[in-house]
Nucleic acid binder design. Structure first.
Lengths: 344, 344
DNA sequence: CTGAAAGCGCTTACAG
DNA sequence: CTGAAAGCGCTTACAG
């Protein structure tokens, strides 16, 4: 077949009109054929597709967004990139979305609700096809912004109480249960004074705190003095500081459960430096199973969290919502895994 | 002043036409006033701005992109997010661009030229206002794609030879010099069998290899057996493996220079495990000064690289290029810093 | 310095 | 199942 190669536009870009002309249908039919909308004669679909291939046609995202009022962007709000946890989620989301022809517009909130609101306002201007946000802790204005936008939204990382999850989509796991499982393990190992050490103090950290609290209370081992909370960012150095402090001020503590692996790694290094034997003198546990935890000395006992799976599953769920497909399980629990190594 | 609040569009969105009507000028004048284009009466500018504020007008990026043939996106190509190096650059770029009203469209190439080409093709469809790419190692098709697109482009991380940098913009530092400085330091410490251990073997790693090579050759200490190269990804575990291998097979090696800190951290941990004293029996050095290197036991001697500054400076340079402003220094060298700690 | 016209490249909504 | 019309919300290019 001989396609007309005449380009009608000054820009030199191959447009839908060119494809339509070459395949002798209207632009509308070409548009529908290319998008795989049904109710188009298969013969025409084939003709249009061939012409598009021949001409090297690629749809213009801006024109499409303007006309349809939906871009091919997905806006994603993450608290912080310095926690490798979120980098893993981001990469998984990106891979899945990219394969489906969507672009990820990432925003970093720094755990700040005002910043989140600001970012979301900005991103909503781009009429994203979908939204991925982290957790549920946000201000009312942001919540309204999401709801009113009508843009499908998936919530990352956390589970929601079974009540009041109407129209809420989420992929995550129970931080409270993960924390309880680790605390239970520490008790079973014979520890009696189990401290909980946390930084950043974001909502998910507080849920882990709660899991530890409840488990200790049930075991009659709870003591507020065992809570070592610090709002500064989580880091290896910070974990070291907290370890030095606890081991000096509370020599009776026989185990420390850190809310994140970077803190626990810092604790392990500081224990080495101070000549304190782990787990003999004090047991150390972490959360997330980040890079390097299996290489520490001793290797770190931790809770492995499914961040890559969370990224993939949330992106897939969002894709379904965007297409208007039914989502069987709106709130997906991907669980966690207790990884017992040598530090406990 | 009383602005007319009548909205003309079915979408309910406040448009430029609304602002124009409210401020009693033509849409064109409103457009120019809002964009800060000169050649508009200051009185009208003020009137238009007020009306825009009052109505809560925000320009539609899609319409703007379609009409102007340039979006407010900046496409950024990074090799890999698992190296925290690039996450730091990404965050800095994002912060700077966001403040200027641009969105970052990130793509991960996995050090694969074909993937890079594919990603760039996809991103170019969105008519980005600017491009940020990593290094210079790419295939000819990709190079052509960048050149033909006419989109301003800044190259990250590396310096370019003084010859042939016509029209090339870059922000980075010399990996070869950074590596040479560290090698020099190791020689000065009295080491005579200095191994170079590297993973991933990307272009910048090879430049560091070259810096080490030249320095050892000059000092008459070069021996090909001292090169320990492995193309698998860089990680703490990989560094540990390489350390065990070198210390077993080449007991005369008295220092190991790792091309990246994660490898060196793994080496330090493995040395502890094997009971090999650092730096007494063997000195260990790294590159980049990543998180945790100052917390290791012993603390890690390394080369600090200015990744946040690279991100900020490259974004600022790109912004200038986008605005058509002259760029005084097209190839910026941000240098590096030798950080001597206790592992050497 | 200001504006009327045309167009960017698609899709929605309405006919047939 | 197909198409002609209108419009998405801006800016470019051209007048004045």
């Amino acid at each position: 077949m001989t396609a007309q190669l005449t380009k009608s536009r000054a820009t030199g870009r191959v447009t839908l009109a060119d494809v339509a002309k070459a395949s002798q249908v209207s632009p509308m039919t070409a548009s529908r054929a290319l998008r795989g909308e049904r109710a188009v004669d298969p013969v025409l679909v084939a003709r249009v597709r061939d012409a598009a291939d021949l001409l090297g046609y690629v749809p213009d995202p801006a024109a499409r967004a303007l006309a349809s009022r939906h871009s091919s962007h997905v806006a994603m709000l993450l608290p912080m990139l310095s926690n490798t946890l979120f980098v893993d989620v981001l990469e998984a989301v990106q891979n899945t979305l990219q394969a489906a022809g969507f672009q990820t517009l990432m925003g970093v909130t720094h755990y700040d609700c005002d910043e989140e609101e600001q970012l979301l306002r900005e991103q909503l201007l781009h009429r994203p096809a979908g939204l991925i946000v982290t957790g549920y802790a946000r201000n009312e204005a942001t919540r309204q912004l999401i709801a009113k936008s009508g843009v499908p939204c998936v919530h990352l990382m956390e589970l929601l109480d079974s009540n009041g999850n109407d129209g809420i989509y989420s992929v995550g796991f129970s931080h409270e249960q993960g924390s309880a499982a680790m605390t239970q393990h520490l008790i079973q190992q014979g520890n009696r004074r189990i401290a909980f050490a946390a930084a950043q103090l974001d909502p998910r950290t507080m849920q882990r705190l709660e899991g530890w609290r409840q488990t200790l209370k049930t075991a009659n081992m709870y003591d507020p003095k065992l809570e070592c909370l610090d709002a500064s960012p989580s880091s290896i150095a910070q974990g070291g500081k907290m370890f030095a402090q606890i081991s000096e001020q509370q020599p009776d503590v026989d185990a420390i459960f850190y809310c994140n692996d970077d803190l626990a790694q810092g604790a392990l290094l500081t224990a080495l430096r101070l000549g304190i034997r782990v787990p003999e003198q004090i047991a150390i546990a972490g959360f997330n199973d980040l890079n390097g935890s299996d290489q520490m000395l001793p290797t770190l006992t931790t809770v492995r969290t499914p961040r890559t799976q969370i990224g993939t599953a949330s992106a897939e769920m969002l894709l379904a919502l965007i297409k208007g497909q039914p989502v069987a399980t709106p709130c997906v629990d991907l669980g966690f895994e207790l990884i017992v190594r040598n530090s406990t």
